[in-house]
Amino acid sequence: MSEGIKKFMFMNTKAPYGTVYALESLEVVLISAAFDQDVSLAFCDDGVFQITDNQKTDGSGMKNFSAAYKALGDYDINKIYVEKESLEERGLTMDNLMKLTYEDEDDDWAEKTSMYLVTRAELADLIDEQDVTISS
């Protein structure tokens, strides 16, 4: 850990739209980018539904905020962990999810994935490394 930099993990465990938590959590994530901390996001349990592809809200009248996840790379937030078991329990694979990427300034701005499929045990290790965990 660099001097003065903390590891922040935003733990997303809830589905979007049914409640406001996913939307308002994402607003904190975007603000956190301005603080030059070591920020990561984890999606597990129903949180994996936050980043499904092809969300269309015209019929429900809900605000579609899914595009904001795609902007995370522009904010240098490029550690996005998705729990494998949570996907499997819900009959999903990474193919059902948005492709979240960032441009690597150290590699001629090559577009790279921000998403890491991790097992429950690997996510437990990641949680264990954090200094601050903000849950919603």
Binding site: Y21, S32, F35, I134, S135
Partner: peptide, 20 residues
């Protein structure tokens, strides 16, 4: 105030606890 106060609170405090 703004959400930055939450992030700053996480940086400055020894522990951040969520009640929700």
């Amino acid at each position: 105030s703004g959400l930055g106060q939450l992030v700053e609170g996480g940086i400055q405090a020894d522990r951040l606890l969520t009640f929700g």
